[in-house]
Nucleic acid binder design. Structure first.
Length: 463
DNA sequence: TGAAATGTTGGGGCG
DNA sequence: ACGCCCCAACATTTC
């Protein structure tokens, strides 16, 4: 009896895992994870993501061990590695859950062709999205560009319930090919080890994800419509990293909401909808992290255009690179922005409302291209994925599909009064606020706002 | 999932 | 009682 390989990617869980289920149903299963930093077009993980991945793989290995299924770790270009591993092992079948980036799909398609020629059974499954992007189209057959009609259509459709954890006793017990030691990948930071704050806030792994989900449904969901806006409370679900790494599936999360139809439950459900919407945009626009979805933004006169060759210089922003560093390090002199950046640096996560404020400030008050902000978040967030992170940055910048209008400019001070009225959030993350050490405001909100609107007008005027 | 500028309204003080 | 002014409070428009 030949073993089946289940190739894990962004689905680091044993529950609700159709690929794992297929492998187990076949007979004996071997799990494989490939750290692929070489295949062209696949974005290498950021620092915070590497930390999460290390611990997530440790947790996955334990969960698989309970089922008796061994986990092989290999590093290199996934196409070659999977092929070699399957050959060495003498595997009879190859299963995985689908991914949606163009480069990833190219690797997967190549392997499907190879497996079919080599006589292996091969199948892929839907696991990371509630709705496959190619199954969601407007009446005229195009992709949805506006969230509301997208969500109206999609949330009315049926989808499966989550699958149970497979029974144990289906693990492969024969001789295994060599596996890397997880430590040899050096995913954890050293000299310095900056991960202490991440470990304080997070427990990666599927078990912790399920625990967090249950706690949120019990304690946080009913107040979510208010709570999600308040960085001074625990109103966020904090499920994003678990969804990003597939430690929770969206089917499980949806299922956990049950039949609740409260306003808060609907708002939370629509956040899952935004996640789907971002992934669908990524599927249709593989270059979403580098190309404006609205091409007119290619002409936007950024003070600091980033790396995509956008021309232009806007008066008053000569020192943008230093301002960018101030933004990254949380010393802009605007407490809402600075507290957010310090929370991010410390925990690998930033409250969603504060993300919007910090992003708006970078793009509209500092005039710095959204790509630079996107790259910073990519490197520092534990929940950044290649779809949601760029899609949300383009949403803030106004260059996205169903984006916020450019002239919707957040005032970080007004946001602070509205959403952190007692100053609890600021006090938590900015111990130096109110002392002589706290930096001066690096720009004037009123004039930079006016300059941003002027730049936007300039972009619109060019033909 | 804004904010600022501009417009409108209506109550109170006052001659 | 009336007109006038002031100015919050709210509504609408604009960016």
């Amino acid at each position: 009896m030949k073993p089946s390989i289940v190739w894990f990617r962004d689905d680091l869980r044993v529950a609700d895992n159709p690929a794992l289920r297929a492998a187990v149903d076949d007979g004996e299963a071997v799990a494989l994870f490939v750290l692929d930093e070489e295949s062209p077009g696949i974005r290498p993980h950021g620092g915070a993501a590497r930390w999460w991945l290390h611990h997530s793989l440790t947790a996955l290995r334990e969960d698989l061990e309970k089922l008796g299924i061994p986990l092989l770790l290999r590093r290199g270009p996934a196409g070659d590695i999977v092929q070699k591993t399957a050959t060495t092992l003498g595997a009879g079948a190859l299963y995985w859950n689908r991914r949606y980036g163009a480069a990833e799909r190219a690797v997967d398609a190549g392997l499907k062709t190879w497996a079919a020629e080599a006589g292996l059974q091969v199948a892929s499954f839907q696991a990371s999205l509630l709705h496959e992007p190619w199954n969601v189209t407007t009446k005229t057959g195009g992709q949805y560009k506006v969230f509301t009609p997208f969500w109206r259509t999609v949330s009315a459709q049926e989808f499966r319930d989550p699958l149970a954890v497979p029974a144990k006793g289906h693990g492969f017990t024969g001789k295994l090919p060599a596996s890397d030691l997880l430590d040899s990948w050096q995913l954890l930071p050293t000299s310095p080890d900056w991960s202490g704050g991440l470990a304080e806030m997070w427990t990666p792994g599927s078990a912790a994800g399920h625990k967090r989900l249950a706690a949120f449904v019990a304690d946080g969901l009913d107040n979510y419509s208010e709570g999600r806006n308040r960085p001074d409370t625990d109103g966020s679900s904090c499920l994003s990293p678990y969804l990003r790494w597939g430690e929770l599936s969206p089917f499980e999360v949806w299922h956990a909401l049950g039949s609740r139809r409260s306003e808060s439950a609907s708002i939370y459900a629509s956040e899952l909808g935004w996640r789907e919407f971002c992934w669908h945009q990524y599927f249709h626009n593989p270059e979403i992290a580098t190309a404006n979805l609205r091409p007119e933004f290619d002409r936007f006169p950024w003070a600091w255009p980033g790396t995509n060759g956008v021309k232009g210089k806007h008066p008053g922003h000569e020192s943008a690179p230093e301002e960018f560093r101030a933004w990254q390090q949380g010393r802009t002199g605007f407490p809402m922005v600075d507290a957010g950046q310090r929370q991010l640096w410390h925990t690998g996560w930033m409250h969603n409302r504060v993300r919007m404020v910090a992003a708006s400030f970078l793009v509209k008050n500092l005039g710095i291209h959204w790509q630079l902000g996107e790259q910073w978040f990519w490197d520092t967030l534990v929940d950044a994925d290649p779809a949601s992170n760029p899609a949300n940055w383009q949403w803030v910048a106004g260059s996205g599909a169903d984006a916020s209008p450019f002239f919707r400019i957040f005032n970080p001070e007004a946001q602070r009064t509205r959403f952190d009225p007692a100053g609890k959030y600021i006090a938590r993350w900015l111990p130096d606020f109110g002392t002589p050490e706290y930096p001066e405001e690096i720009v004037d909100l009123k004039t930079t706002r006016a300059e941003a609107l002027e730049a936007y007008k300039e972009m619109k005027e060019v033909h």
